[in-house]
Design a protein around this nucleic acid. Structure first.
Lengths: 193, 193
DNA sequence: CTTGAATGTCTAGCGATGCTAGAATCGGTG
DNA sequence: CACCGATTCTAGCATCGCTAGACATTCAAG
């Protein structure tokens, strides 16, 4: 069945191409510019081909979101593993998170703002999303403070970062002071042992 | 020139009707359902009439946002004025904020998520938006802590609330624990004199 | 090598969307 | 009452997500 295998491989390859192209287009010109027609043209196939891989545009956004979540987890772990001590780890984590959001706004939106048809905070949440949250929890769990649930603390810290990320990018918060806000956030929320 | 005055009055009245109808439609069925056709039908005029009042859908969203921001400011001040002491005030503020976001999701989106063509964090920011921020600052300024800029502290607290509001509504955070998250947030961020 | 069926892809089109030009109608004024 | 300017509507454009059915390609059997 080598023929079928080759076809499957090519199909998977094309699917990766679709996701990568959608992501690229979204980062370059925003998600509004990611139309099925433009996307089809870029991958040099017709529109219906997209629908043979995904149910619709939502699922394509969802695929970009999963890819992005995996990268976010990697970036967070890389940042924290390079830091010494809980305090430095949390600061590095926060910076890495906001950095990711700033550098990959479209991907960040796909993960947290847009509707990619993904389940959250459930058992059937996709693995990459769970893992990204786990990456947060790993460093934040050690500064939650006595008697405070680490999950709840992580949710709160994450929400704060998310708020900073989205409000800053939407022009609601002036970017220059981002660093000071992060310092204040870590100062106040993290309880050092 | 009584005739012109009457016309102006009727025109202003119709503009209010457009904004109110857009808001109602958005709260009932989401902003995606607020199409120029549906909106025109509901106010019993044709589409071009909308464009004689607003440049486009964006400006309509912006008008809803300004109206909502004014209400948010009122709600925040009502909540804080009924509380005794800085700590109680801040808790009441946080609850009122999240309550507003939960009860008026479409309006909240118009203010903080969607593009209503509004300027933020500038001098030419519309008054209602500035005032809503001022309402936050009034109560948060007294718990910023020594040596911490009250504006910066307010921005951070606001971002945290915004993150909680949006992530919760998007199904990213389980709603039942909202209360505990708010308590933790106030506990950690607010510095009592 | 030919042929038939199955698989894959494309063309063309549907119902909506935001927005607008030009026709039609309305209303105040001489 | 009749006209003319302001107002409103009809009808249409380009584009959107999505899909049915025509077309092409590929593989296996004769």
């Amino acid at each position: 069945m080598s023929v079928q295998e080759r076809k499957q491989r090519e199909r998977a390859e094309r699917e990766r191409l679709i996701v990568a192209t959608a992501r690229e287009l979204a980062e370059q010109q925003g998600w509004d510019a990611v139309t099925t027609r433009r996307l089809a043209e870029r991958i040099e196939y017709s529109q219906p081909v997209l629908y043979s891989h995904f149910r619709g545009k939502r699922e394509i956004i969802g695929a970009v979101a999963l890819e992005g979540a995996a990268e976010l987890a990697v970036a967070l772990r890389a940042a924290t593993s390079a830091a010494d001590g809980p305090r430095a780890r949390v600061t590095a984590l926060a910076r890495a998170y906001l950095d990711f959001a700033e550098r990959n706004p479209a991907v960040y939106d796909a993960i947290f703002q847009l509707d990619g048809g993904l389940a959250f905070a459930h058992e059937d949440t996709p693995a990459p999303l769970k893992d990204a949250f786990a990456a947060l929890l790993e460093s934040l769990g050690e500064v939650a403070g006595d008697g405070v649930d680490t999950g709840l603390f992580t949710e709160l810290f994450w929400a704060s970062l998310h708020g900073l990320a989205t409000l800053t990018r939407a022009g609601r918060l002036p970017p220059p002071e981002t660093g000071r806000r992060v310092e204040l956030l870590v100062d106040r929320l993290a309880v050092l042992p």
